Simulated scan of single mutants.
Amino acid sequence: MTTAAEIAPDVPFDIRNLPKVSLHDHLDGGLRPATIIDLAAKVGHTLPSTDPVALAEWFRESADSGSLVRYLETFDHTIAVMQTREGLQRVAREFVEDLVADGVVYGEVRWAPEQHLSQGLSLDEAVEAVQAGIEEAVEASGYRIQIGQLITAMRHADRGQEIAELAVRHRDRGAVGFDIAGAEDGFLPSRFAEAFRYLAEQNFPTTVHAGEAAGLESIQSALVDGRALRLGHGVRIAEDIDVEFTTDEANEADLGMVTLGPLAAWVRDRGIALEICPSSNLQTGAISAWGEEIDQHPIDLLYQTGFRVTVNTDNRLMSSVTLSDEFELLIDTFDYDLDDLLELTLNAAEAAFLPLEQREALVEQITEAYSELR
């Protein structure tokens, strides 16, 4: 697979300096290889390699399997070194530093505290450690960036209510939303229906991984049972879109007639944001129904038909990408221009789990930065 990092299109602006919004970015999928090696040595965890370059390549190759299950196995190593306050705080601090270097001005960092308790931390202590690292990096950056935590429950476990209550406890101390993640197929959001009901009663927003390893039933459950305001990936909503090709009068080109099914129409017409991660979707086989190359990714179909598409990295380490790389990939593949990047970024800003006034300020900040390039 050709990764976004290997593509360098000739564009008349610096993509890395464009203001970006990152909505789907896993903390345990964004560690620096050198940090993994250092922390692993301290906790006695054995790695596939202790060379940073070789370790980075191992993660990318292991994740590039076409299987979400195997993709998720790579997290055994990152989670193993994130079991102490020191490890969590350092990883969070460096994560934010990497977002700053990528031009991100607003980011939501998702992670599952329940996976980081093996060395004695409580759920609250784990969240506090990550928040400390975030705040340390934001303060040191001297950069206009906002970061929120998306507190995540693992969908194959039975701690949904407990994690939902954890998220609400920290709503004024860094937590901005709730998510469920992990093996999607066979674990519908309906498993956590009561937890999602509790979150709705607490007026706490949710985004749900759906439409990646499972299809329309998973998306429907995310919307109904999970009360999702956004769909994590959501790319398989394209299964509910019918495209018929006809030949024009000159017999020179195929024209596509697009018909939305009821679920796709609901998602599009209500502006439910899709947190699409192009490179990751290719790696995990989420787009296998459409093909195995990036130009067959349905992201362009969704974007062109009016869905609120946002662009994200998912896991920077496993996919060996930045958000800048993903933008470059879309430019190279679909010939997107500055107006497209602005629209995709504003889609994300408007879907951010922020109060209205802060979303409006974020939109203004982004729009002004883009206007200076025209």
Rank of each mutant, 00 (worst) to 15 (best):
S190C: 09
V81Y: 10
V235H: 03
Q304V: 00
G182R: 03
A157M: 15
P189E: 03
F353L: 13
T3D: 07
I331M: 14
A5F: 13
D10R: 14
H24R: 12
Q358F: 07
N315A: 14
M1N: 09
A264Y: 05
A352Q: 04
N281M: 04
T246A: 11
E125G: 06
V91R: 15
E57A: 15
S49M: 00
I134F: 05
A101S: 12
L301V: 03
V127K: 11
P52C: 15
Q115D: 02
G142R: 10
G182S: 05
R93T: 00
A40W: 12
Q83I: 00
E244P: 00
F245C: 06
E97L: 03
R308I: 11
A132G: 05
N251V: 00
L274S: 02
G306H: 06
L123M: 08
A40Q: 11
Y198D: 07
S324A: 06
E184M: 00
P19N: 06
G133T: 05
D98E: 13
T2G: 05
S371K: 15
H233P: 05
D314Y: 13
E6W: 08
L362W: 02
T207Q: 09
P205G: 10
A137W: 09
T2N: 12
L323H: 06
L302Q: 07
R308Y: 10
